[in-house]
Design a protein around this nucleic acid. Structure first.
Lengths: 296, 296
DNA sequence: CCCGATTGATACCCTGGCGGTATGAGTGGT
DNA sequence: ACCACTCATACCGCCAGGGTATCAATCGGG
């Protein structure tokens, strides 16, 4: 009658994601029986079957699928309310900028220098952590490469450039001016996946690169390991023992600034304006990067 | 540590909106002391002062203002998860269409006839109830006149037309081909507000017209009462004793179809496509209504 | 200037919801 | 057929959250 509690949603999401009551209970730091009971009560309360349990597997009904999607959104919104309230209570207001280290295309110092509305607080995160940070209110604005899930976000493109592959200079492929994905057979990415897949699909959601760029460069220099990166990253890291080459069949990627769509914050609006101006002047207007020969 | 509960958000929203613990407690169906304690605990948990209490008044801090806004969207998201899950569990799937009675510009029968993807369930609501119904998951799609708060929604315009005033045919103003707002001095809307304000600002959020169009028409015919409505409504209700006249200084209004922005439902997409086609053919393409002489 | 009305805070109690443990029951694999 | 696995049931105990009584602070009126 009186509405769902976030606890119920958290429990359901845990079970739905794990598809296993025991593991879900462990993840939630509780015992399995009360979790089973909570889910049963949730189903009673909604009057809807969410899960199909056999003793061997747990699967979602279609109602369960829709609840899983909506519950994630709702939990993000609740977390956002909490984080933003916490932040709003701090004595000195700041703008929290989420970005991936080294993926600022060299704009960051100019941005910090030009943006004077608020002090900027940096949230350096791994790949794919910027969007969640925006969604759950830990960040006000983010700098990140496309593609990403834009739902609930507004974005503005800054710089576009082709994706390059970083090779050991000694690699035979370095003799070519351009390589195809298939040519990369035999090479691997730092995490072990074959390079010729081109990492077209995002790495699994739980994957986190624990390597920063310089560590990756070291691996690449030694050989047999390659790495993909936008040219607006590569051109900032020229290295004698590494060659960057454009890759046929990889989409170009764009550095974008993104922020919550419902944001009415003038500080964010001013930030976006500043960043856009800096990007436009730094890469004098239209995509100076796109289509140009690769660095090195 | 473990995150906010929706109960806490509901309590805070009640107090923040009422700006009074006693009334808020009454609205929540509980006593005042536990509510005071719950808010105090919430502030402790967040480490942020949300309210400034004197014994005479309660005001929001700026952190409280941001939490109020964010809590409303979070509560909507939670309610949406609940409503959509309930609906998804029903044996026969339907598309829930929210609209204001008589504000379909005559499209509704054609829509129902042409849209065969799912059975359509109508949610007839008063003015301003469509957007909340979309936000909290009671409706999948809505038909409603601009302007409205589009945050979180995607929209597609269907028909645009000027806003007319409905007058008694005997009213001296009916002799004119067009009237200005100031001319309406002395006349009143059915709810008693002076007509010359033009209802430029929306009626107060709690205002609900308990009158349907035919009741309003009866009042207008008797005289001294006027009513504003889009021409794409008026042209569907020609009446001998009522004159419709365009009003200088009122923006035209557009009938739009709207749906939750994050919706990935193919049924909604198909519905929007169908409605758009019907509107385009019914009003052969560009705004046949706009700029044309008013009905009658 | 004092007293009463108003309103939020404090103190204390008590109940039911939620989590824990022990155990049962169904099913698939060997 | 038996064992391992996994979810459900039964039962218990605690404390979070709501209720009642009362205090404290502030404003307004006579």
């Amino acid at each position: 009658m009186s509405g769902l509690e976030t606890r119920q949603l958290r429990y359901f999401v845990a079970v739905a994601e794990e598809r296993h009551f025991g593991r879900a209970a462990e993840r939630l730091g509780m015992a399995q029986p009360p979790l089973s009971r909570a889910i049963r009560d949730l189903e009673r309360q909604l009057g809807v079957q969410l899960l199909i349990r056999t003793t061997r597997q747990v699967t979602l009904t279609s109602a369960g699928e829709t609840l899983l999607a909506d519950a994630r959104v709702a939990l993000d919104a609740v977390a956002a309310a909490e984080h933003r309230a916490r932040h709003a209570g701090r004595p000195v207001p700041t703008l929290r900028l989420a970005l991936k280290a080294d993926y600022d295309a060299g704009l960051l110092p100019k941005i910090i220098d030009a943006y004077r509305t608020l002090p900027v607080e940096l949230l350096l995160g791994g790949h794919g952590e910027q969007v969640p940070a925006l969604r759950d209110g830990r960040a006000d604005v983010a700098l990140l490469p496309t593609p990403f899930d834009e739902r609930g976000l507004d974005t503005e493109p800054l710089v576009t450039g082709p994706r390059l592959v970083a090779l050991a200079a000694a690699d035979p492929l370095a003799a070519r001016t351009t390589v195809r994905l298939a040519d990369l057979a035999g090479r691997r990415l730092p995490d072990g996946t074959p390079a010729e897949t081109g990492r077209t699909q995002q790495p699994p959601a739980n994957w986190r690169s624990r390597l920063d760029l310089s560590q990756i460069f070291n691996l690449v220099e030694v050989g047999n390991i390659v790495w993909f990166l936008p040219d607006w990253v590569a051109r900032r890291f020229p290295r004698p023992n590494i060659a960057y080459r454009p890759v046929d069949g990889l989409e170009p990627t764009t550095l974008a600034v993104a922020w919550p769509a419902e944001s009415r914050s003038p500080a964010v609006a001013a930030f976006v304006r500043t960043v856009k101006e800096i990007a436009d002047t730094s890469f004098d207007d239209e995509s100076s990067a796109a289509g140009q020969p690769a660095v090195r």
